[in-house]
């Protein structure tokens, strides 16, 4: 294109890339320092630790009841995925296919939990959950995490559903499919890539979402990120390396989910696939 060849333009471009490079370098440093520390024997005032060891991981495993925390994290994430699919997929279908009075208001209700930060509504939500005896329980944590996840699934899926030709559904109706059959045999298979993408993103978000779990969890049902917060908060009680080992476990868990998500999530690709299926 019209590349600016004057000195000012070049300097500007150089500056922009320098900022990006500086940001990524520091980001790499932040992440690497956690990984290196978790593998070091002792590290104080030198570039690298004196020696390397893996015993902080077994320490973290026993000291933080990491097995239990991971189990809670997976239970919460699994239930949130299931719940947001059951609630979100049909709602997304209705929003994509029907125009009705008050639709804008419904959209507003769904968009609010996504744009209002969790800490703002977390405290009233927690008090409602405590009122119904759900505060500090696993069910409470799951319900709280579902609040932003259900609208999230809806807003990811609506464009996917709009891409599917309504004549496919009309044809299924002509051949006598009821709403349930239509859903199970036509829509869900066509939407599978979109649903998977949305659910993997829900998984990533649920593992990473700190505030709602923090405000609603009791001591027995903390997820990984909340347990990590408490151990950093109470720094000095445990060895930093042990906390960092836990941080690495958290990081690896969410990065694996992210990589899986990014394999699914390129929307153009998914729409293309849905259209190809349709054409057969």
């Amino acid at each position: 294109m019209f590349a600016t060849s004057d000195i000012g333009g070049r300097l500007w471009r150089l500056g922009v890339w320098a900022v990006v490079g500086f940001f990524l370098l520091n980001l790499a440093g932040i992440i690497a320092s956690v990984v290196v520390d978790s593998l070091g024997t002792s590290w104080f005032g030198t570039w690298l630790p004196d020696g390397f060891t893996t015993h902080w991981y077994s320490d973290a495993w026993s000291g933080f009841q990491l097995g239990g925390v991971l189990q809670v994290t997976l239970e919460v994430a699994g239930a949130v995925i299931l719940g947001s699919a059951i609630l979100g997929v049909p709602a997304a279908y209705a929003l994509a296919r029907r125009e009705f009075a008050g639709k804008k208001l419904v959209m507003l209700v769904f968009v609010l939990p996504l744009i209002i930060p969790p800490f703002t509504y977390g405290i009233p939500l927690a008090s409602v959950l405590y009122q119904f005896g759900l505060g500090g329980t696993l069910a409470g944590v799951i319900l709280a995490n579902l609040v932003p996840s259900v609208p999230f699934v809806i807003f990811i899926l609506v464009p996917f559903i709009e891409q599917i030709d309504p004549r496919v559904e009309a044809a299924a109706r002509v051949f006598g499919a009821g709403t349930w059959d239509l859903f199970r045999r036509v829509m869900v298979p066509l939407l599978m890539p979109g649903i998977l993408a949305a659910l993997v993103l829900v998984l990533v978000r649920t593992i990473g979402l700190f505030e709602l779990t923090f405000l609603t969890a009791g001591p027995d049902n903390q997820t990984l990120v909340v347990a990590l917060y408490y151990s950093v908060f109470a720094a000095g009680i445990r060895a930093t390396q042990s906390i960092d080992a836990m941080a690495v476990v958290y990081m690896v868990t969410s990065l694996i989910c992210l990589i899986v998500a990014l394999r699914f999530v390129d929307p153009t690709q998914i729409v293309g696939r849905a259209k190809k299926v349709e054409a057969h």
Binding site: I86, L87, G88, P90, A91, Y93, A94, L95, R97, R98, E99, F100, A101, K103, V106, V109, F110, L112, P113, Y121, L125, V128, L143, A144, L146, V147, V150, P151, I154, T179
Partner: peptide, 20 residues
Amino acid sequence: GFDTTTLLLAPALLFVLALF
């Protein structure tokens, strides 16, 4: 615009109304 398909919206809407 309200028919059985629109009704599919109800569970999610009730959930967000109840918990948000």
